[in-house]
Design a protein around this nucleic acid. Structure first.
Lengths: 200, 200
DNA sequence: GTCTATAGTACGATAGAC
DNA sequence: GTCTATCGTACTATAGAC
């Protein structure tokens, strides 16, 4: 029960750091807040992490390793559905819904964008571990779909993801739901129709 | 020359605030930094703006009123070109180039996203004054184009803008240029082809 | 209206007891 | 390994001279 003391505390600190950094951003989060949220003293935080920047970097790298992006795992999705329209609708709707459900994923993306200038190497970590795999998987999905004949599956994957990310940014992050709302299905329907009808 | 003293100082303060808030974000910018960047004393800053949050709000509202988004003014663009492919290519390339050229526009978008939780009303101001007009203008452009017959011009406008915004976020903001680069023309070509070939 | 000087607080990081 | 207590600094905001 008292084994892995160091690991337990380290996990608690990272959990507290996640909560605070996600809610307030890097600069507005104090090490006191992290310590309180983690249930340890501030000195304990500094015994596990060299300084504030190191703690933040460790947190981001841990979250990026978990692939905690705004998108779910695409590897489960194969081409069970023969109809490419249904396949793509399912993919797009799942992406939007998983993003809208998971408040943490949106906060994570906001944090990466917010600190991309101060911590460019962490932004690269996010791109490498989150964005790149999603684009890659979706590209394979599009390229291998039996009934889709796309000229450039990778460019199409970026168009699809970009449309969904921008929708989520506008609706969920910037509060556009109230002044600029568009139904999810309306966007997805047009998006899927646009892609499926532009075969080679 | 000494007229409009109050206005001159206020403008200088806003200019200094813009420089600092854009570079460091809200929490990491101190009122001392703003005062130094503006060339005035800190007390003068507080004589023109109630507190830090008010100064920030005034700055964001001023920038949003200038329509300083990542996109340029679309009103100049009419349908001189008969070919819809050429029209859309021109629109898309202009948007990306103006965003990549204007470092300030990218910093502004990053700032809005970064502080969208702390200042939701400022995010709404951005949506209302920047994002909404761009979507609206592009929707009209698409709807009125003589050789495009789109089922849903507004949804298509969001798809187009979203693809470009995500491209800029990945390439310019998150440093994806190095590990995840795609040629601008390759994305734009696929995007325009996808849209033009999906007519009603 | 603008300045210098400063009050009062909170920050990041550490020393030393246990 | 974890705690309490604290150091030195930097912060937001203001008081008072000119």
């Amino acid at each position: 029960m008292t084994s892995r003391l160091r690991g337990d505390k380290a996990e608690a600190i990272l959990a507290g750091a996640m909560q605070q950094f996600m809610a307030n951003g890097y600069a507005a989060t104090s090490m006191d807040q992290v310590a309180i949220a983690a249930g340890v003293s501030k000195a304990t935080v500094y015994s596990h992490f060299q300084d504030k920047a190191s703690l933040f970097a460790a947190l981001i790298q841990k979250m990026a390793a978990k692939k905690l992006g705004i998108f779910f795992d695409l590897t489960k999705l194969h081409h069970q559905t023969q109809n490419p329209t249904e396949s793509l609708m399912q993919v797009a709707c799942s992406m939007i819904d998983s993003a809208c459900t998971d408040e943490q994923a949106i906060a994570f993306m906001r944090l990466i964008v917010a600190e991309s200038q101060r911590f460019p190497e962490l932004a690269s970590t996010y791109v490498e571990n989150v964005a790149k795999p999603v684009i890659s998987q979706l590209t394979q999905f599009l390229a291998n779909h039996p009934h889709l004949q796309l000229n450039d599956p990778e460019a199409t994957a970026r168009i699809l993801i970009g449309s969904l990310v921008y929708y989520i940014i506008l609706e969920e992050m910037l509060g556009g739901k109230q002044t600029l709302h568009m139904e999810r299905d309306r966007l997805v329907r047009t998006l899927v129709a646009t892609i499926t009808q532009s075969t080679a």
